[in-house]
Structures are given as C-alpha cells and as structure tokens.
Design a protein around this nucleic acid. Structure first.
Lengths: 220, 220
DNA sequence: ACGTTATGTTTACAACGTCAATATGTCCAG
DNA sequence: CTGGACATATTGACGTTGTAAACATAACGT
C-alpha cells in the first residue's frame, strides 16, 4: 500500500517533503537565532538530513534564502490584506495597511531584513521571490490605483478625494510605499531614537498616523 | 631619522597606519567586489599584512565593518551638506538633500547596505558608528527645522515651502527621512519596477520631486 | 524484474573567523 | 648606548561554512 504520511503534497520520496521542511527549518532558525546562525548545514541538521541533502532541492544557499524571503513577502501581503479588510474608508485603509507593514517588520525583523537586504545576492535570479514581492506591492498599489473594490460608488479611487489625481495614483503608491518602508526600516534598525519612540509598545497605527500626517493622502 | 611616510597621523609603528589602511582596503573591496567578497582576510591580503594582523586594531570583523559604515555615514552627511549649501529656499534645500541621499545610495550601494543592513550584528556596540549615524540624521533634521518660517504662498514646490510648525518639526524630519530612505532602499533593491524608472540615468532631483509631491509639511 | 531517474550520503577541499603562541620592531629608563 | 617593556605583526591551528564529486538507495515506468 502507498504510504499514508503525505498530507497536502502527493506522497513523496525518501523524506516526505524535504524541500518544504528545509524552508521551515530555515525560517525557524532565522527567527530564533538570527541570520548569522542560518547556514545550509544548520538547516539540514535541524531537518535531520545530511549536510548536502539540500542541494537536491536548492542550487544554492541563496536559493534557500530566496524561498524563505518569498514566504515572507507572501505573509506580508496576507497581513496587509487582513489589516485592510475591515477598513471602509480609503484613508483608513491606507493607515491599516501601513500599520500591518510596520507590525510585520517589527515582529519579523530577521525575515524582513532578508527580504530587503543583500544576503540574497541577485534577487532577480529567483522568479518565485520576484513574483511574491510584486504581489505584496500590488496589495499596496491597489489601494491607491483601483481601491474602490469594484463597488459602484461616488467617491472613486481612494486617493482621489485627498487631492491625488487619478493619473498620479501609481506614483502616489510608490511614495506611500517608500514612506512606510523607510519608517519600518529605520525603526527596526534603531536609527530613530530622537523622538522617544518605543517601537515595541507603541500602537503601530498611531505611529503611522503620527508620521503619515505629512503625506497628503494618508491623513485620516 | 624618522620615517617620513606618515602624512596625517604621527609616524607610526611597523606598518605606518594599518588601521586606516585596512579600512580603505575594506571600502575598496566592498565597492569593487561586493559584500560577499569582503572578509577580514581579504582586507589583510589587500593591505599586504598577515591574515590576523587586523586583530591588533579591530576586535572583530564587525568592528572593521562598523568603521567602514561610519565612514559611509560621514560621507553621506557631507554629501547632503554639500547638496544643500547652494539652495536658498527651504523646500529647494529639502529636495537637494533628498537628491544627495538618493545619489549616495545609488552610487554606493554596497556601503549603503552595510550602513543599514544586518551585517553588523549589534550596531549599538560601536559608538563611532552610532555617532556618525546620528550626525547624518542631524543634517536632515536641521533642514526640516530650518524650513520653518519660509515665505508664504508657493505653488509648484514638491516639498513644504511654507514650513512646519515648530512643534512638528522633529516628526516632520522623521517622516521626510523615512520617505527618502524608503525610496532609496526600494530603488537600489530593484523593487520599484512598475513605473519605468531608470534609476541609473534619471535625474535624482527629478525623482525626489516626482514622488516628494505627496509629502506635505504645511498641513498637520 | 529491471534499469532509469530522483533522492540522499560520504568524503573532500578551500575559505573563513578567530585563538594561542611566537616573533619583531619601537621607545623609554638607566 | 643599552636593555627591557610594550605595542605590533606573524605563524600555525581549530572548528565551521559553502559546495563539488563520487557513491548509495529507493521509487517508478516499462
């Protein structure tokens, strides 16, 4: 009889689903011990296979990292979507998305750094990563460009009523992304110290509002 | 007779000024071959000393990297100052500073990543680095404060031209920093692709203006 | 049943960060 | 001028890493 261990992926070869489990191991190590401790060998060790087994599933260490980073982008996109869902007002939705972005960055520092750092030398060499990153940005951009959610309504695109013209929406999305990404990066790097911000305890939405008021489409 | 090789530092020991030259070597390797190729041993090799010689001047690899990063922050601060100097109008000065920031990031990608990435595990452990980073931010923040009391009116200025209320200046500086830092980061990571931006060839000031439109310091 | 192919292991190597022991140059006290 | 004392650099070594090559083993189609 066929082995019944497989759960989602069709029952597998020797291990079960080494590729996926290696990614999980890498994520765990990254979160618990940091980037410096994340090695191909450590991931293999934690998974219980030989040190070169990963090479059957990843051409490179970079390929493993890219898979982890791609997962991070998917999680980020999901978090933004979940955060934006309950918000009805467009501006409110932007704050919710920014808040989700900030929260993700602050609570998954290592993964966030992997997603945007240089540990993965040439990101364009990993299509899955690229696709996941694009999709995450799409969540943000959609709020700016086509954010009316398909409902026939009077107020149109979410940014329009804040003085951003339709044609400017794509650029506005980039500006918003830049702002929130920069804020997140500077916060987790501890660069922002002058303004008594306790990133751990402060409400993230409050932070987004506090600094976002200088963006003319994010004011509530 | 005393060796006459020394130039700025008082004539030195065996090498001359190993510490400074190791930093220069590290910078060179970083710029020419990237972070992956920058090792303590490589820096020592390029300097022409044994592989453990650096340990007389740096406790760690991280200490060397911190010194390089600190140099980066000083260069960035200098570039911002130089860019801002010729601008008379406050808003114009902000654009100049943003432009200098972007230019630095795009032309010194590796150093920029070192300055804000995770290669240096605990940045707070390196006072020189911390000081240099603070100083760089001060250049930016001072402009935001100085922007107050600009002349009234104004129409086409992409950033604030009527200043920020005194009490809001620190937060405004953080917002501006976040924006420009995020834009720089996303650009050099190649994350911004949708808006046909050729970061290499496009005028940086134009980029800052294009996206900086959405910053509004007059409000709040 | 059998061979092809996908998967995993063993062994090996060069490069790295770092430590301990040692050597060498510099400088000050006499 | 001389002899330590001390700062500076080297040699050699150890454990870890990424990765290649050779080998082993299990699954699957025929």
């Amino acid at each position: 009889m066929s082995t019944s261990k497989g759960e989602k992926t069709p029952r597998r070869y020797h291990h079960g689903d080494l590729r996926a489990e290696l990614i999980r191991s890498a994520q765990t190590i990254l979160e618990r011990e940091g980037m410096a401790k994340l090695s191909l060998r450590a991931a293999a060790r934690r998974t219980g296979v030989s040190q070169t087994a990963p090479y059957r599933h990843f051409t490179d260490k970079a390929a493993l990292l890219a898979a982890v980073a791609a997962g991070g982008f998917r999680d980020l996109a999901a978090a933004m979507r979940a955060g934006a869902a309950p918000a009805s007002d467009p501006a409110e939705r932007m704050v919710a998305i920014g808040s989700a972005y900030l929260t993700f960055a602050l609570e998954h520092v290592a993964v966030f750094h992997l997603m945007f750092g240089t540990e993965i030398a040439d990101k364009s060499a990993h299509p899955e990563l690229r696709r996941a990153a694009d999709e995450a940005f799409a969540v943000l951009a959609n709020q700016a460009v086509a954010g009316n959610g398909g409902r026939p309504g009077g107020d149109g695109a979410p940014l329009a009523d804040d003085g951003v013209r339709e044609a400017d929406a794509p650029d506005a999305a980039i500006a918003a992304w830049s702002f929130i990404h920069g804020l997140a990066t500077l916060l987790i790097d501890g660069q922002i110290r002058s303004a008594r911000i306790d990133a751990e305890s402060t409400d993230r939405a409050a932070l987004v509002r506090r600094f976002g008021r200088f963006l003319n489409f994010a004011r509530a």
